[in-house]
Design a protein around this nucleic acid. Sequence first.
DNA 1: TCTGGGGTCCTAGGACCC
DNA 2: TCTGGGGTCCTAGGACCC
Length: 452
Amino acid sequence: MRGEPSVLHVDLDAFFAAVEQRDKPSLRGKPVVVGGVGVRGVVSTASYEARKYGVRSAMSTAEARSRCPHAAYLGPRFEVYRQSSRAVMAEMRALSPLVEPLSLDEAFIDLAASGLTGLTVEDVTAIANDLKAAIRKVSGGLTASVGAGTSKLIAKIASDLDKPDGVVVVPAGTEAEFLAPMQVTVIPGVGPATTQRLNLAGVRTVADLQQLDEDELIRQLGSAHGSSLYRLAVAADERPVVSDRETKSVSVEDTFETDLIDRAVLTVISDRMAHRVGERLRKAQLSGRTVTVKTRMHDFTTHTRSSTLAGPTDDPRVIARVARRLLEESDLGGGIRLLGVGVSSLADWIQDDLFTEEEFASAAPVDVVELPSRPRDQRGYHPGQDVEHAEHGRGWVWGSGRGRVTVRFETAETPPGPVRTFSVDDPALTKVVHAGADADGEPVTDHNGPSE
DNA sequence: TCTGGGGTCCTAGGACCC
DNA sequence: TCTGGGGTCCTAGGACCC
């Protein structure tokens, strides 16, 4: 553990609501609730004025309205929040190159990465106050709360202690005693289920937790959660601040005003969601192999079905077709309140400056035979696309870039096949045209054999 | 006036492979 | 008078976070 409180956690106060109050002066000083405004909406953020009435994040909007009928209820404006967030994060990066955003309104900063050493509590307090002033200036008056300590855990907990607009720096060496009197729920990762289990074992405070031995905790909570909680309880937290964490999945979901049971309607919605997922993948220059469909029943039980392709795709039509099949296999019971489509097992094959966003968007959906005489700079192979090689036969585009295309010679009948890389203008390689509009890029195999 | 939407990480069982 | 053990991949579900 480091010897100085050089990890900062910055948390913008009531961020969405504060942005609305900033942009609409008539709302300042008044209760503002941002979130879903429909019958099944929930609260994203309540201004401090609204919190006085007991309105909280994740509460149903209906309950919030009953507690605070005179508040302003606003749908979120994510683009605006993103803009302010970018400006605020830029201020943090001016302070240190090592910044780890956790969401639009939260980030860790590692001061050690900026070369600052020998930091006293006073030094860090001054740095935090300067940062708050800079954030206020660049964001048009938003306030932040800052916590600092020798680890992420301590910084995160500290930032919560003096909200809003506060600074709390925990001196090095005082971490365990700092945590001891607190409820176990302050530890990130301890939610309702874990709290209940711990309470049954007589554990309420971190001090109680510090008395338990690791094996007992692992028996109660499982190996990963048990051992990590054991370490965190004694403030042994070596997790590094990491910038640029890789995206692991991309998904779209929607809760309906009333439960839906009509498969034709749901199929149309599923197709639209698949296209939105594909668009977002392409924008991020990502593609993925596992398509998941999520359904939520009237009683809130949630089911997922997934299927993994042989190679990554970002093609909306491929995602849509797999999602349709998974939806067909899903039991809708008496109707579903939510449908979602997602893609995971992501690869960044397409991260290549050969493809600009525009080129890729225009090249990807084309469904034509490319003859051997095509121009030497021919591009437009995309993951999941079926191709034919004169020598090796039928295969899938596994990835492409830098003038090369990687093909996996595998079909539903013959998995798994070899993987080979060719030049994009190899005359022996052609795209395969399918009969029927939705028949490009067959989704290949499930793990346990051919799926179709 | 029940419970959003976007994620992350973990677990457990079965298939499969060596 | 059977049939181990370990590793990996896939699927499904659950807890948790903002």
